[in-house]
Computed example of a mutant assay.
Amino acid sequence: MSEQKRPHILVTGAAGALAQQVIQRLRQDCDLVAVDFREQVYLGDDIPSYCIDFNKRVFEDLFRRYDFDGVIHLGRIQSSQLTRMRRYNANVLGTQKLLDLSHKYGIRRVVVLSTYHVYGATAYNPALIDEEAPLKSAGLSMDLVDSVELENLANIYLWRYPELNITILRPCNIVGPGVRNSISTLLGSEHAPVLAGFSPMMQFIHIDDMATALVLAYHHQARGVFNVAPDDWVAYQHALQLCGCRRIPVPSIPPSLARTILRTLKLKSFPSYLMNFFKYPVVIDGRLFAREFDFTPERSLKEIFRYYRENKHPV
């Protein structure tokens, strides 16, 4: 009897902590190729690793050479990175190129990492936001346009090419060791800004649980869009207290004053385009993903906050 062929999977965003966690979970049973737009990373002799711009012709050579079965696309550039145009080229045009090549070379499984930021933060958000809610971020902040367009692209390919079996995941705030996003930087700082009079409810998912969710999503081929979040949440200011942060109140009116103060304090971890997310709650409903993929986060909020309390990195 012939030995079953190991799946060959392309993982993008390989320089990030989340992608490396996913790779560690898959390497025993899959042949992996790692790619990142920003830098080449060494992941062991068994995993070829490349630093490639998806929009360059050489990217297609990987599809010819490795005969991929699946793609896990974690290479979304955060809004705090690069200029708006370079970010758009990487996130939107790069993702379009990736999906075009996936269709051209007969890929049968694609998982795309998005973000809950696409819903936008407004005073009129429902208590629990499900996957059917409109994506309002593009109308609220130009800095989140590329995140919404990336999702819209993935949705177009999801319905146009059902054979790609695309799953799009919208996680809440991903935090934990190695995570370098804005909220993780705030939780790990000695002093953190808060908008005076506001303390919205927030959700947090540990990087270990998010990596598990991505692996589950890859193996269990359910097409569609899914929120990924635990069923508990906490007020932002209380989360800072539990992480041992000293809060710095910043007046929220007028918005230009808040931005000026943040620039003066050099608090890049509190970007102005996310200011509404520190005003209004954006609590997403993760029950559909939990049911469909039999997923339950293992890391509690208590454990997450203990990590940040014990690992302070002044900002």
Rank of each mutant, 00 (worst) to 15 (best):
Tyr88Phe: 13
Gly75Arg: 03
Leu62Cys: 06
Ala211Thr: 02
Arg87Gln: 14
Ser137Phe: 08
Ala127Thr: 12
Gln241Arg: 15
Asn125Pro: 00
Met1Tyr: 11
Tyr161Ala: 01
Asn311Val: 03
Glu131Tyr: 05
Glu303Pro: 02
Ile166Pro: 00
Ser182Ile: 01
Gln78Ala: 14
Lys5His: 06
Glu163Gly: 05
Leu62Arg: 02
Gly244Trp: 04
Cys30Asp: 02
Gln241Ile: 10
Thr260Met: 15
Ser256Leu: 12
Tyr308Asn: 04
Arg38Ile: 14
Val11Asp: 10
Ala138His: 11
Asp231Phe: 08
Phe198Trp: 12
Cys30Ser: 13
Asn152Leu: 13
Thr95Gln: 10
Gln241Leu: 15
Asn125Gln: 10
Pro281Lys: 08
Ala222Val: 14
Val110Ala: 01
Phe305Ile: 09
Ala127Gly: 07
Ser102His: 04
Leu10Glu: 08
Gly70Gln: 06
Val234Glu: 07
Tyr280Met: 09
Gly106His: 03
Lys104Ala: 13
Arg86Leu: 14
Leu187Lys: 07
Leu98Phe: 06
Glu131Lys: 01
Ala213Gly: 07
His8Trp: 07
Pro177His: 07
Arg87Val: 07
Val283Ile: 15
Leu62Met: 05
Ala235Cys: 12
Arg291Met: 12
Arg65Gln: 15
Thr296Gly: 10
Glu149Lys: 12
Glu303Phe: 08
Gly44Gln: 07
Arg87Glu: 10
Ile23Asp: 03
Asp285Phe: 03
Arg263Gly: 05
Leu128Asp: 04
Glu3Asp: 13
Ile174Glu: 08
Leu135Arg: 14
Ile156Glu: 12
Val110Arg: 01
Leu195Phe: 11
Asp61Cys: 08
Pro134His: 07
Ile205Ser: 05
Pro177Leu: 09
Arg170Val: 09
Ala229Arg: 05
Asp143Cys: 09
Asp36Gly: 03
Ile47His: 03
Ala192Ser: 15
Val145Cys: 10
Gly13Ala: 06
Asp209Trp: 04
Asp31Gly: 06
Arg109Gly: 00
Asp143His: 14
Pro255Leu: 11
Pro297Met: 06
Val283Phe: 02
Thr185His: 09
Lys136Ser: 14
Asp208Val: 02
Ile129Ala: 06
Leu98Asn: 08
Arg87Ala: 14
Ala192Asp: 00
Pro177Thr: 08
Pro171Gly: 08
Ile9Leu: 10
Gln78Pro: 14
Val71Gln: 02
Asn173Leu: 11
Tyr218Leu: 00
Arg180Thr: 13
Pro254Asn: 03
Phe37Ser: 12
Tyr236Pro: 01
Pro162Glu: 06
Leu195Asp: 06
Lys56Pro: 03
Gly188Ile: 03
Leu214Asn: 05
Phe198Glu: 09
Gly75Met: 04
Met202Ile: 09
Asn125Cys: 02
Ile72Ser: 03
Ile207Tyr: 02
Ala19Trp: 04
Trp159Glu: 14
Phe54Gly: 11
Arg299Gly: 00
Tyr105Ile: 03
Arg108Val: 07
Tyr273Met: 10
Val225Arg: 10
Val110Cys: 02
Met210Gln: 11
Val315Ile: 13
Tyr307His: 09
Phe59Ala: 08
Gly120Asp: 01
Ser114Leu: 03
Val283Met: 08
Arg25His: 02
Asp208Glu: 12
Val111Arg: 00
Arg64Lys: 11
Leu113Phe: 10
Val283Lys: 05
Ile207Arg: 05
